[in-house]
């Protein structure tokens, strides 16, 4: 009897140790990443880094204002593509999706989610960049938007599924047509969760580099309008990090810090949004 208990206690301690180690490792990676980025990047993170254009090689100073604005514009286009398609697709799957068609849509979304980002980039390159003849913000945003679709779609679907059927029935029993029940009751009940999911899908593509290499390319100057090549934070980091200049390396670190702060900020905002929600937090 006591031997059994002793063995169980040993196993218990072992398993607890293993899970604790995994937790510490996960947290440790994040803390290390943040700390190292802050340590390396903070020295170059000046006001002019955020407001000035890149300086020519050999000239000190300069910044990445064009990359920050470029990333924002790319994400704006990505949101215009990814959010409507992802959101409406998620509504379809959760509220109307039954049978083979819905299963295929769901499966396609999962496959799309697994498509390597560079493949998305090269596809948009072939379908948009080559016919048009030049790289552009629109092409880059489209590539990012395509990557957002499966994430936004599944997030929307999951949060709508959390809405109890009793609410749908309540609305229908009051004589509301199906679409009215969905628009006025189901979606509002899940709205915080859906907003969170959409925000996270945006944060997820904010750091993508590969799809931009073939589509938005890069630019050392301001990119006017939407149809010119544009700088973006991830591509700038890539370009500056592999350049042979020590000063550029420092700026890449600073850009990394800016990008991570933006993504982390989005994640925290999403979490705060969810905490106040009626569904998803309960």
């Amino acid at each position: 009897m006591t031997a059994t208990y002793r063995r169980r206690r040993r196993v218990e301690r072992l398993m607890f140790g293993a899970t604790a180690a995994a937790t510490v490792t996960t947290l440790g990676v994040l803390v290390f990443l943040l700390g190292y980025l802050a340590w390396q990047g903070a020295s170059s993170l000046t006001w002019s880094f955020l407001t000035a254009l890149p300086a020519p090689v050999g000239e000190p100073g300069g910044g990445m204002a064009n990359a920050i604005v470029g990333s924002a514009k790319l994400l704006f286009v990505a949101a215009l593509v990814g959010i409507p398609v992802g959101f409406l697709g998620g509504v379809y799957l959760a509220e109307y999706g039954r049978g083979a068609v819905a299963d295929w849509v769901r499966y396609a979304a999962d496959v799309l989610n697994g498509v390597p980002s560079i493949v998305i980039g090269i596809t948009v390159y072939a379908l948009v960049v080559i016919p048009v003849g030049h790289f552009s913000t629109l092409a880059g945003g489209l590539a990012l938007g395509l990557m957002m679709i499966p994430v936004a779609l599944r997030a929307t679907e999951e949060f709508l599924r959390l809405v109890p059927d009793s609410l749908r029935e309540a609305a229908l029993a009051l004589g509301a047509p199906r679409w009215v029940a969905i628009v006025r009751v189901v979606i509002p009940a899940a709205s915080r969760g859906i907003a969170t999911g959409l925000l996270l899908s945006l944060a997820r593509v904010a750091g993508e580099t590969a799809p931009l290499l073939f589509t938005a390319l890069n630019n050392r100057f301001w990119s006017p309008g939407w149809s010119q090549p544009t700088a973006s934070l991830p591509v700038m980091i890539f370009t500056y990090a592999i350049a042979p200049y020590e000063e550029w390396h420092q700026q890449a670190w600073a850009a990394g810090l800016v990008l991570l702060t933006l993504v982390l900020g989005t994640n925290v905002a999403a979490r705060l949004l969810l905490r106040g929600g009626a569904i998803g937090s309960a």
Partner: peptide
């Protein structure tokens, strides 16, 4: 219809009752 488990909408008391007439 009134259901077994009460199922008010996550809205105000007023908006719950006014839902049907509004629809």
């Amino acid at each position: 219809m009134v259901f077994q488990k009460s199922n008010p909408f996550p809205k105000s008391i007023f908006d719950n009752v006014a839902f049907g007439p509004r629809v």
